[in-house]
């Protein structure tokens, strides 16, 4: 058997089990740790597809920065309260949850089954990327030459979000009269 196939089986199994653990575990911190595992195995899957740059970024950004902040916030805000149990909730809530889950599953299945016809194979095959001089080079060529305006626009959007957050946080403080 091909070792890439074995690695694919290992990483996808970890990803699926990890996602189940995210939902099923009682304490929020354990869920967050399971989500880290899921992200890590995603990056393994990306690396198997030959997208090393995306794999590195997946770990660097999602696993290394965003999830650390998640865990950080969970720990700061009362860490050991178990998440609410479905058994205690009302019948209406259970029904809505079930419908939502089935709808989401349906969307995912439809997307997975029909993606071959809609998306097809892109321009950037593995040969093309190698010809352009590797993942990193081809991404940066596209990002900083062809789409540099869009890229800068997105950075402005993020800057706006940061400014808005700071403004909101400041206003709350001045209302309550406390210092952070």
């Amino acid at each position: 058997m091909d070792w890439i196939f074995v690695a694919f089986i290992v990483f996808s199994t970890i990803a699926i089990l990890g996602s189940l653990m995210v939902v099923l575990q009682k304490t929020p911190v354990s869920s967050a740790f399971s989500l880290v595992l899921v992200f890590f195995s995603f990056s393994g899957l990306y690396a198997l597809l030959g997208a090393h740059f995306i794999a590195a970024l997946q770990i660097l950004v999602y696993t290394g920065a965003i999830m650390v902040l998640f865990v950080f916030v969970i720990m700061l805000l009362g860490q050991d309260q178990p998440t609410s149990d479905l058994k205690d909730s009302s019948l209406l809530f259970k029904g809505i949850t079930l419908l939502g889950a089935i709808g989401l599953l349906n969307v995912l299945l439809q997307a997975a089954l029909s993606s071959k016809d809609i998306v097809g194979k892109g321009v950037y095959t593995e040969e093309k990327i190698n010809e352009m001089g590797g993942n990193l080079k081809s991404i940066s060529e596209v990002l900083f030459k062809d789409y540099v305006f869009h890229f800068e626009l997105v950075s402005f959007l993020i800057l706006g979000a940061i400014v808005a957050t700071v403004a909101l946080a400041k206003r709350k403080n001045s209302l309550s009269g406390g210092v952070s």
Binding site: H52, F53, F72
Partner: peptide, 21 residues
């Protein structure tokens, strides 16, 4: 690896989970 030093940084950023855990 194609990503070189980025690999170093990304793997090194995982170490903090051990400390948090």
């Amino acid at each position: 690896l194609d990503v070189g030093i980025l690999y170093c940084f990304s793997i090194a950023s995982l170490g903090v989970y051990g400390i948090i855990m």
